[in-house]
Design a protein around this nucleic acid. Structure first.
Length: 468
RNA sequence: GUCCCCAUCGUCUAGAGGCCUAGGACACCACCCUUUCAAGGUGGCGACACGGGUUCGAAUCCCGUUGGGGACGCCA
């Protein structure tokens, strides 16, 4: 049997972090089994669905690198099919018309609350009434018949066996009075029609699985495998929501998080493979299974994401990073970039990336490469250059640099060390002023690397500006 | 309120009866390395929610308590 999984977000906002993880797990599971991963947009609530939100989902998935198979399915386009199934269920006696008004329903809800708070709200009052009793002027909904007694057991691939007595299940609506299908009907019909073999989704749908189970049965269809994965919680332990600042994945892209870091982070949230932490996507596809998905919810931890991002930043292609840094710098810079910026960035990227958690971190620290002299100086850099003796040494160093042979890190290193030795001072006493002069800061990559990346001409220019 | 789920360091987790004086990672602290800051290395702090069972033996199995979460729409 070929595995078919699906990710079915409702386009009411952006692709949030929880949805992204659900998508990732579905994608990983499908890829692991050589199956297909489908995308379905649950846009049956036309009032809340927007094209903008749909685009955000595509973009988010693309950014994450989760490619779906085939064209995305628009659930609203399947409405006629959903209606057809509802009518068939009606004809088969598995469903019935219900003429209750919203007021009656509200009353029943109130009643259920009073009398023990039962989960079963609708009392089934139209279940056995004939159409002849239908009140005039009321468009009925169609409700599905749930079993009245016994119990239902779902064999969930993550949660194990979960049993619920059927008296907690009420006859839910599958077709609204305006003739449109409800979510409950639409999911079941679409999943069946798409051939979904595994429904991997958030824990919050576990309760729905019981209702959907009986809908499958009523239709005479095979019930897919279910895997309800725990939700992601905020730092306070409650379901991640907007009030936690739960943001769309594009927000993390904006923050300078790498997609591979996000994938790794999301994967390890609720899934594990022994003590492995840094897991490549190829490795994840090879290892992923539902058995190793935990059953308890995990909290979102930005520190961990940042740490993973730092790791992937070090592994990233320097040229690619340089391009991103350059693009961001062009947007935010108030000065014109050096014509040599890109070349310097590519050469010095390893030194920069090693010190950063995010791409914006690099943009900040890269200003020494991005712009030509004259530099902006931090207070600490200015202080380091306040000493006349230090400036004098820089002047001497400049002369040495001017006469240096090949402009390499090794030669630079040797030259500066020799100089310090000849003056009987510590390397730091000359390296720090040198750093200040070259970078405008007291913090930077290794000073010989900086010298090397900057080149002789620019280095001398910067030294001249502080010594004259 | 009713139903369902969950419960190991602050956080993510390893652990599927003896390998556990509970391991790893993030964060934090210290030290080393060192031209700054990082990175890296070493070490430290730090958890089996509680109570009963079952068993020669329980973090692991069972029951209960407590705590947390989710679901109870003509939303998805």
């Amino acid at each position: 049997m070929t595995v078919v999984t699906r990710f079915a977000p409702s386009p009411t906002g952006y692709l949030h972090i929880g949805g992204a993880r659900t998508a990732l797990f579905n994608w990983l599971f499908a890829r692991h089994h050589g199956g297909t991963f489908a995308l379905r947009i649950e846009d049956t609530d036309l009032k809340r669905s927007t094209q903008d939100a749909i685009d955000k989902i595509y973009q988010g998935l693309e950014w994450l690198g989760l490619d779906w198979d085939g064209a995305p399915v628009s659930q609203s386009a399947n409405a006629p099919r959903h209606v057809e199934v509802a009518q068939q269920l009606l004809a088969d006696g598995m469903a019935y018309h219900c003429y209750c008004t919203p007021e009656e329903l509200a009353e029943m809800r109130e009643n259920a609350r009073q009398n023990g708070g039962s989960t079963r709200v609708y009392d089934g009052r139209w279940r056995d009434r004939g159409p002849s009793e239908a009140p005039a002027g009321i468009e009925p909904v169609i409700r599905i018949k749930m079993p009245l007694d016994g119990e239902t057991t779902i064999r969930d691939l993550v949660q194990g066996e979960v049993t619920r007595t059927n008296d907690t299940l009420d006859d839910f609506i599958i077709l609204r009075s305006d003739g449109t299908p409800t979510y409950m009907l639409a999911v079941v019909v679409d999943d069946h029609d798409m051939g979904a073999t595994h429904v991997i989704r958030g824990d919050d749908h576990l309760n729905n699985a019981f209702r959907q189970y009986h809908l499958y049965k009523a239709c005479g269809w095979d019930v897919p495998e279910f895997a309800h994965i725990p939700l992601i919680h905020g730092a306070d332990g409650a379901k991640l929501s907007k009030r936690h600042g739960a943001l769309g994945v594009e927000h993390y892209a904006e923050l300078g998080i790498l997609p591979e870091a996000m994938r790794n982070y999301l994967l390890r949230l609720g899934w594990s493979h022994g003590d492995d932490e840094e897991i490549s996507t190829a490795q994840a596809i090879e290892w992923f299974n539902l058995d190793s998905v935990g059953r308890s919810p995990a909290r979102f931890d930005m520190d961990r994401l940042l740490n993973l991002n730092a790791h992937y930043l070090k592994e990233a292609d320097p040229a690619g990073l340089a391009a991103q840094v350059l693009a961001r710098a062009r947007e935010s810079a108030d000065k014109t970039l050096s014509p040599d910026a890109q070349a310097r960035l590519e050469k010095g990227m390893a030194g920069l990336a090693q010190r950063a958690n995010t791409i914006p971190d690099i943009v900040d620290s890269a200003s020494l490469y991005l712009f030509d002299a004259p530099l902006d100086f931090t207070d600490k850099a200015t202080a380091a250059l306040a000493d006349a003796e230090a400036r004098e040494r820089l002047g001497e160093l400049a002369e040495i640099f001017a006469g240096l042979g090949a402009w390499t890190e090794e030669n630079l290193d040797a030259a500066v060390r020799n100089y310090a030795e000849s003056r009987d001072i510590k390397l730091g006493q000359v390296a720090q002023p040198l750093r200040a002069a070259l970078t405008g800061s007291n913090v930077s990559p290794g000073i010989f690397e900086v010298l090397s990346v900057l080149g002789r001409e620019e280095s001398l220019k910067r030294l001249q500006l502080v010594t004259e």
